[in-house]
Amino acid sequence: MRLAVREALLAFRRAPMLSALSVTTIAFSLFAFGLFGLVALNIRNALQTVEDRVEIRAFIADGTGSEATAAALGDIGAFPEAASVRLVSQTQALDRARRELGEFSDVFEEGILPASIELRLKPGFRDPETVKAVAKRIEVYDFIDDIRFGEEWVEKLHRLRNIATLAGLALGLTFAVVAIIIIGSTIRMAVMARSREIAVMRLVGATNGFVRAPFLIEGFLKGTLGGLLALVLAWIALTVINRFVVQATFFDPWMGAVGVLAGACIGLAGSALSVGRHLKRV
């Protein structure tokens, strides 16, 4: 093992240009994938923010007693889909309308707006079908005058979310495949450049495992370095975007670690495949 590590490190020293080229190629392939990841992440976050605003408003008929409203509030709050539920009194509704429609605030008179129950739904229960079903369950209370949840808007949002998920998956997969092919070819080049060494190793009686080990370590190191470099490049790109275009979110540490690990794994797998194929031939 010690010898394999030494050979892997020596390979960097003996062919610094080729090693740097491999690491840079891996880094840029992962960087392209990382940029896509950043876009996907920020679109997801934006949709999440909009989705958080999906709510059902049930308007309460005038003259409804406070006990009946409180009981309904308790029942609705116990729905498995409910994230939060609150009662908006007539006064609160008026205050909100005046606040939101500043210059038209004087057109609203006392008591013109009804009180309402506002229900926000947990993530995973914001699709049109669930929202509609929950609204129906609230409608059964006889003191509910009207119920609104922006049916059309919820449907559009849901469609948008589905399209974004599908496009994200397809594009992500394409980027990942391209990255794997490019990284695989780079590593294969590095293995080919050392085919003579592999042939000599086998000639003097090295086992396949012994021949493989330094290449696997080298592939793992190149993948890890490439992954780290890609992460730095993505961070620089995001800093530029934040400064000149739009505020965007960066990967959390866990996602960053997964990215670097993915680089390491691609490097390792690429090396294993290339050396394996090469060993079959020589």
């Binding site: 003579r196 000599v200 086998r202 000639l203 003097v204 009686g205 090295a206 086992t207 396949n208």
Partner: peptide, 16 residues
């Protein structure tokens, strides 16, 4: 590999 460790092989092009 076990067999090759008991043999020595030399070529015209040295293979160093």
């Amino acid at each position: 590999p076990r067999l090759r460790r008991r043999l020595g092989v030399v070529f015209q092009d040295f293979r160093l």
